[in-house]
Amino acid sequence: MLFSKRYQLIIIFVLIIILISMTFRNVRRSSETGIVEKLVLEMAAPLMNAINRPLEGLMSAWQRYIFLVGLEEENRKLKKKTALLTQQLIQYREGYSEGLRLQKLLGLKEKISYNVVAARVIGRSQLSVFQTMLINRGTIHNLRVGLPVASDQGVVGKITKTSWHVSKILLLTSENSKIDALVQRTRVQGILQGSGLRCQMKYIFKTDDVMVGDAVISSGIGGVFPKGFLLGFVTGVDKKGSGLFQNIEVTPSLDVTRVEEVAVILPDNMGDKK
């Protein structure tokens, strides 16, 4: 053995002290991405790409097969849904044109358009409660920490680390993701926190009106997510527990474990694509 037991204990003790100090230093400068971290991300990205491409092919072939099995049933359901949505669309068009008229009347600005950078998912981590995803765009594509990430079906999460060609996204469903949100129908405001594959909407009083099926959107408060982005739908409301607030379960509008392409939303003065 290289060291005697006593020396081993001393070494272990010293190393633990070093580790603790390093961890606290890291936490303090959590918003920056260090050069070594960037290098690791850069090296991991091609490896992940090489593994993911054939895997994605296999998975999509399997999903297509599963899709074909339930196609008839799904077709029937979709036809019903389309009829319902057409009715709703007519009502919303009416509301939209009324909104435009009022906007003109009050002299408000037109809806803001966003710059986006499209990216492909090259890796996911679901190992712990912290769910993250890697995309193939980084600082050279104008991305930076804190930018919101969405797909055509809703919000995916926000960027927490960036290297030159790779960025890490903290998913909406991750336990330490917190987004200021609104219940679209009643404009009740709360905090949407991830809880694994679903989310919880917190700090909504028991007296507030929330129903299963309500859409939950970003409130725009907090400065990360623009207002009005779809986050998910209420799938459970429980007012039985003690305390002031309801337990509201929200299912994200997209399956974060399957999303393959995303769009990073840039502030108006950045970006290369409108």
């Binding site: 390093m22 936490v27 959590s30």
Partner: peptide, 22 residues
């Protein structure tokens, strides 16, 4: 490496893994 690729609290696994190793 795990912190870089999949972690969310910076340095957490860099601390936990050596601790569990000891």
């Amino acid at each position: 490496f795990l912190d870089c690729i999949g972690g969310s609290i910076p340095g957490l696994f860099t601390f936990l893994y050596p601790l569990l190793f000891f």
